[in-house]
Design a protein around this nucleic acid. Sequence first.
DNA 1: TCTATTTGTGCAATATTTTGCAATATTAAA
DNA 2: TTTAATATTGCAAAATATTGCACAAATAGA
Lengths: 249, 249
Amino acid sequence: MLKEERFQIILDQLGHEQKVYLGHLSTLLNVSEDTVRRDIKELADQGLLKSVRGGAVPHSPGPHHFRDRIKYDNDQKQIIARKALQFLKDGQVVIFDGGTSAMLIAQMLPKDLKLTVITNSFPIASILEEHEHVDVLFAGGRLLKDSFVTIGNDAIQFFKKFRADICLLGICSIHADLGVTGPDFEESEVKRTMIESSKEVIALATTEKLGTAEAYYVCRTERLSMIVTDKEPDNKDFDIYRKLGISLV
Amino acid sequence: MLKEERFQIILDQLGHEQKVYLGHLSTLLNVSEDTVRRDIKELADQGLLKSVRGGAVPHSPGPHHFRDRIKYDNDQKQIIARKALQFLKDGQVVIFDGGTSAMLIAQMLPKDLKLTVITNSFPIASILEEHEHVDVLFAGGRLLKDSFVTIGNDAIQFFKKFRADICLLGICSIHADLGVTGPDFEESEVKRTMIESSKEVIALATTEKLGTAEAYYVCRTERLSMIVTDKEPDNKDFDIYRKLGISLV
DNA sequence: TCTATTTGTGCAATATTTTGCAATATTAAA
DNA sequence: TTTAATATTGCAAAATATTGCACAAATAGA
């Protein structure tokens, strides 16, 4: 096998995974871990990925240093993202919420998928900038430091203009009676508008967020079309949501 | 078998596969590996494929990303950015245009300067995110791929809401009679609104852009308060602008 | 036609690169 | 701290490239 073939395979892996491991690649490519390490170093020198302890993570070009803040080792969220991905179809208009879960979805998105994406998240917009067939509509507003999303009335008014097919709602607390809630007032306001502007709402939630509530109201639980979790969906804890007509995945 | 026939077969192989091996070609073409190697070298010299250890791979055209563009000829622009920097004072509301010049200014901005920045440029917003005392208001709209700015009616409406102290206008063509012009229609539309929403307009222009014109009108020359160039401002070529009441720096 | 020259090919000697291993150093986690 | 995992370094063996050369085939000029 040519060295270039190995390079291609490593880069392909990083197209849909957020991290590749030395050990995994070593068996996959049939070479020693040392060789994989050297390959990764060479690719890192070319700026095609970022070498990290134990493997490598994607490193996309462009001036987006917020990309570095992604926590790549978040297995739960990665599982959720992979599950959610299957519900995105060609031609849809999708609102992406600003959380890390939605960001992972953006990163795993097949490059040939045609979408119109509406978002208020810098990281998501900058990831999708590389997708030729994705139109990005970005919500203006005040930039919230450290979470890289725009908020405020301008962002709200922006989302109100659209009628999206799907809203990918980042991880919030979900409680069957109290509804969907979030920890930040202004972000919750924006989320509420995102939901109002979408036909279907897919909530991305790690299981520990189910049954909990936070200070600020976002929407009623029944408004959700689907909850994507990191666990098996046939758990009986989830029955309460199924009764409300919500699919669990 | 003619050498040209071998060439054709090698190239055909690379049309289907992503790689060819020396050994494989050697048996296929009934010549020694040395000959194949020489063939590949010759084809590589013509740029028809890429010679690699053990075989060859298709020649991939390198990506031309935003990041790559930043490096080029920024000496001039750095001079301009440094000069422009002195006009920014605490407490001002400043509109940053999306060009590389404005980006360099953002990069050089002292961390303790208090500003409100209004922009439609991702790179600028993400640079300023690290400035604790800078409030960033980001214009929504359609994201223009590869230049990382938002454009369209939404962006225009956003800028119309403000009354800024200064507009830092990225490098356009400036002609004393024909006014300020740009090469892209939609970007020029946005620039026009930026200018309308600002008290003062500081144009950033490399000297070769002075006296030239492009297709799309942005504003009259007199509307500029100042032109920052990379040359000494006492050049007599600049007199024509001074007569219009524009400072040169 | 015949010779002289060029070109393409394979072979062998030598140089370079790649690879895996082992010893040592560094880092992250308990 | 100690401990386990991962990285780095130097090295030798294997794989591959390069070079020089001999020889054959094709080409050109007389």
